[in-house]
């Protein structure tokens, strides 16, 4: 009987010992986690402090303070004549490959034929339009609907929307794409690893992959021009003022006046990206 008690007591002692070891271990682990958390908090606090001290600083761009500007872009599709001078100027200004597959900005043509419900859409990259220009590096719209019964037709210039809540910036794993204080979404080509998550995240198809450099590319609103007081190249060459660019902080600027005097809309507002390219003269087919 005593033997039996002994036999029953022995596992109890063992259990107690094991539980003590577990408590010690958990205590130690807790301490380690607390320690680690403290380190993370400390480093976060220090980087926050760095950010706070840099808050007043601006990038060293001559005669330019990004905190004083809030850029925006307007497209008046009722004025666009589809001459594609903007597309060629953009490529030249920004060294975009002169072929039919890489565009920072482009122009779409929406044509609804009589009896059809959906618009037919083509852009300068369409093979028929490339054939009309005769070369990959120069663009013109082929006059392909001249004998068709057309109900309505119009041209729509497109470019990066430089969204207030850009999905592309959110998905970038390396911090290679970002939004500047003055509203432009830029790409740091030295940090881009070419994963193309951003190309897929953009609801507007504004980004493309530069196979030659292995990086993503897109419209910068000609950041190198606007920071020097110039207009983006596409705006500079538009012969009919279908493209408008300016500073929303300046209430007299062309873009502020454009937004004030027209009923503007943005593309795909339901995606929550809050675009900063404002359109006039487009309809439900355009997205």
């Amino acid at each position: 009987m005593q033997q039996n008690e002994q036999l029953e007591n022995q596992p109890d002692e063992q259990l107690e010992k094991q539980q003590k070891e577990r408590r010690d271990f958990l205590g130690c682990l807790g301490g380690a986690i607390a320690c680690g958390a403290a380190t993370v908090v400390a480093s976060a606090a220090s980087s926050a402090a760095v950010a706070a001290t840099a808050g007043g600083a601006v990038p060293p761009i001559p005669n330019f303070d990004w905190s004083k500007h809030q850029w925006a872009f307007g497209v008046d599709a009722e004025r666009c004549i589809g001459c594609l001078r903007c597309v060629e100027a953009c490529k030249r200004e920004n060294n975009v490959a002169p072929d039919a597959h890489h565009f920072r900005t482009w122009v779409e043509r929406y044509v609804t034929l009589e009896g059809e419900e959906k618009a037919r859409i083509d852009s300068q990259a369409d093979p028929a339009n490339i054939a009309a220009s005769g070369t990959d590096g120069q663009y013109r719209f082929a006059n392909r609907y001249k004998d068709a019964k057309v109900e309505k037709a119009f041209f729509v210039p497109k470019l990066c929307n430089h969204c207030t809540h850009p999905a592309c910036v959110q998905v970038c794993p390396t911090g290679a794409t970002y939004k500047t204080e003055d509203g432009a979404v830029l790409i740091d080509h030295t940090y881009c690893i070419g994963c193309q998550y951003c190309v897929q995240a953009c609801p507007y198809g504004a980004r493309f992959f530069n196979e030659e450099k292995g990086v993503t590319d897109k419209c910068t609103w000609c950041y190198h021009r606007i920071t020097k007081g110039l207009q983006p190249a596409c705006v500079e060459v538009c012969p009919v003022s279908a493209r408008i660019f300016g500073d929303r902080n300046d209430k007299q600027s062309l873009i502020s006046q454009f937004i004030q005097n027209h009923r503007v809309q943005v593309l795909r507002p339901e995606t929550g990206n809050a675009p900063n390219v404002f359109y006039v003269g487009i309809d439900k087919d355009v997205s």
Partner: peptide, 11 residues
């Protein structure tokens, strides 16, 4: 981290 989660000098 100068201005945010990106290389500040790239601007």
């Amino acid at each position: 981290y100068q201005y945010g989660h990106y290389r500040g000098s790239s601007v």
